[in-house]
């Protein structure tokens, strides 16, 4: 079952330029606007990141891309419900958890491509990576966990809402969560309300560990993985809750 859901989702995504192109362009746009346009931010006194501003921004863009990738899977599910396709899955699946697994696989494959392209472009445009291969695996692991958590969240939302117009409600929480973190400067440079919010936002710690990997100076790795796994574990019952509600609604 999971295989069938995954195959169709992946197939749909890659054969539809209207879906592929924006998904590929958005991270590149962030890379241009934030890493390119704001590079002088690194000149702020006490801004200290040895790998340079592109690398600093890249980590956030990667995490944002994989998180929003999860939201897009939610959109696809909402569309499936609107067109009655999801009902077919529901009827066909003896164990409906397979549906969730299938969608998660779709999402992972998507972001592997979009994240991969973003990484490639960042490297080509001169991003420095000071971390070793092992460090980069750490960043990859965090990105995958973030994607799974965001996807599970979106599945839950999409199955609760079951209409395309719910897209806003799927995307906005993810968007807000990723922005309420030290996006442009390190946490130490923030002050006011954003500092208060960011210092308790789990995304902040995942982001900081990711930046540590790129800078070749891994810090707070255990905490970041712990938080990422915790997010997945929290979102898993949420996704199943959505599935149950969708089942009840028929």
């Amino acid at each position: 079952m999971a295989g069938a859901v995954a195959w169709r989702g992946i197939h749909n995504f890659f054969l539809n330029p209207a879906l592929v192109i924006p998904a590929l362009l958005f991270p590149l746009f962030f890379l241009a606007a934030f890493a390119g346009g704001l590079s002088r931010v690194a000149d702020i006194p006490s801004f200290d990141f040895p790998a340079g501003y592109t690398a600093f921004q890249f980590v956030w863009i990667l995490l944002q891309t994989v998180a929003i990738g999860g939201a897009f899977t939610g959109f696809a599910i909402a569309r499936d419900f609107e067109r009655g396709f999801a009902r077919r899955y529901m009827l066909a699946a003896p164990r409906r958890g397979g549906i969730i697994l299938g969608y998660v696989v779709v999402s992972l494959v998507r972001v592997t491509v979009t994240g991969g392209v973003a990484t490639l472009v960042a490297l080509v445009s001169g991003m420095q990576v000071l971390g070793s291969g092992v460090d980069l695996f750490g960043l990859l692991g965090l990105a995958l966990l973030v994607n799974v958590a965001a996807t599970l969240f979106s599945i839950g939302m999409a199955m609760l809402l079951r209409t395309s117009s719910g897209g806003f409600l799927i995307q906005t929480p993810i968007f807000v969560a990723t922005f309420l973190s030290p996006v442009f400067v390190p946490l130490e440079l923030l002050d006011g309300w954003i500092e208060a919010v960011a210092s308790v936002n789990p995304v902040t710690f995942i982001l900081q560990a990711g930046r540590g990997f790129v800078a070749g100076d891994p810090t707070g790795v255990a905490l970041a993985f712990g938080l990422a796994i915790a997010l997945v574990l929290v979102m898993l019952p949420w996704a199943f809750f959505g599935l149950r509600r969708a089942e009840k609604a028929g």
Partner: peptide, 18 residues
Amino acid sequence: LLIFGFQAAGLGPAADIP
């Protein structure tokens, strides 16, 4: 306003760029 809020808060230290 939402984007304004995020950018203004997150990029606040940019005012310290020489």
